[in-house]
Design a binder for these strands. Structure first.
Lengths: 209, 209
DNA sequence: GTTTGTGAATAGTTTCACAGCA
DNA sequence: TGCTGTGAAACTATTCACAAAC
């Protein structure tokens, strides 16, 4: 069933499977089944099998998944195997937390550059990265970076996006809830922290449903 | 078309519409059309109309949406109109950023209690909230709080979830990527910061699709 | 026996096109 | 005329059930 469109939902779940597989691996487990993995991460086993089936040739029936080949296969599909360097723009409260966040490493990401507009922060080092002037964003060009993380106030996010796209960034993770417009070929993923909380009350007991 | 199952995807989009409507409202606009709102937030107009149609009686055809009634209607659907008080557990890098995050207010949320395990933090005030000992989590019971935000290290998240559920929390927003088991009737929403970044490379140009 | 891979059935969501109201 | 509300069509994703592989 190779060579057809991969559902976006499948792509969204692959990192979840990857995390589960890495976790088991780190615990010394060498192979697993769709059922065990599903239990661990909280999905149904056939969902995992179906998702993997889009890519074909995952592993042999009857035997389960070999964790190390599973990990490298998913890493390869997601293009994570080479590792990725990212630039962070905005080193405020959230930006600082992101700089220190250990979870990026799980997927081979590393924040190697940070920019801010605040004179008092420029030149300082934080979590091993030195904070540069936003005006120097253009210099990204030469670094082989193609991922940017935006953690600036809402009103500035479009300007920053324009600047980093000009500097060669092809993928943006933004924490600003405002929509940002980018040219074709640039992919934006938005994490809006408050918006997920906003639908929690709807699902609380005693709701009308 | 009232009184049928509301799609989860619709519920997920309502806060987006709400934010757009609030934004226009704050800019002095009094009414809008599905097309203008759609343009602002980056969806298609029929999506908005369809989503609203599940709830019936939104506004009169031919005239557009009155913003203030739109806002109060959506607030009411999402059960945001009474406001919500939340407790934060874990005041590390991320927790501190969340305490200072202004975006929660958009939806009527307020963090009114914070807990940490670190003796040096307990008793201090941060962003107007005093940090309490995690051992005092049980005292939540009496506060009329039913939302909890978990920003503790992965390994501790299940214990914290158990503790706050015991203290009466019905809705949890967790930033820990590990699956949390909760009793029926408790709703968990997970924000996994790194996992969204992990699918960015897949969508980058030069991928095999 | 166990476990995967996958066509087929079911469920859910998006998109369209247009009737109906102001 | 302009815009919403919505049934129906098209599309996408989930779930099942079981054949094939070990």
């Amino acid at each position: 069933m190779r060579y057809q469109k991969i559902p976006d939902e499948t792509v969204r779940r692959l990192p979840v499977y990857l995390r589960g597989a890495l976790h088991l691996s780190r615990c010394g487990v060498e192979s697993t089944s769709s059922e065990k993995l599903a239990d661990l991460i909280g999905v149904e086993p056939w969902q995992i099998r179906k998702d993997f089936s889009y890519f074909g040739d995952f592993d042999t029936p009857g035997v389960g998944y070999d964790l190390s080949s599973l990990v490298s296969r998913v890493n390869n599909i997601l293009r994570l195997d080479a590792g990725h360097k990212a630039a962070l723009v905005g080193v405020g409260n959230l930006g600082s937390a992101l700089l220190a966040y250990p979870g990026f490493r799980t997927y081979g990401f590393e924040i190697v550059a940070a920019f801010d507009i605040d004179r008092r922060k420029i030149g300082r080092r934080q979590a091993g990265v030195s904070i540069e002037d936003m005006a120097a964003l253009g210099a990204l060009n030469t670094c082989g970076l193609h991922l940017g993380i935006i953690a600036v106030p809402e009103t500035a996010s479009q300007d920053i996006a324009d600047a980093i796209v000009k500097a060669g960034i092809k993928g943006i993770l933004t924490f600003s809830p405002r929509r940002i417009a980018v040219p074709r070929g640039v992919k934006v993923i938005t994490i809006d922290i408050a918006i997920d909380l906003a639908r929690l009350p709807y699902y609380l007991p005693s709701n009308r449903r």
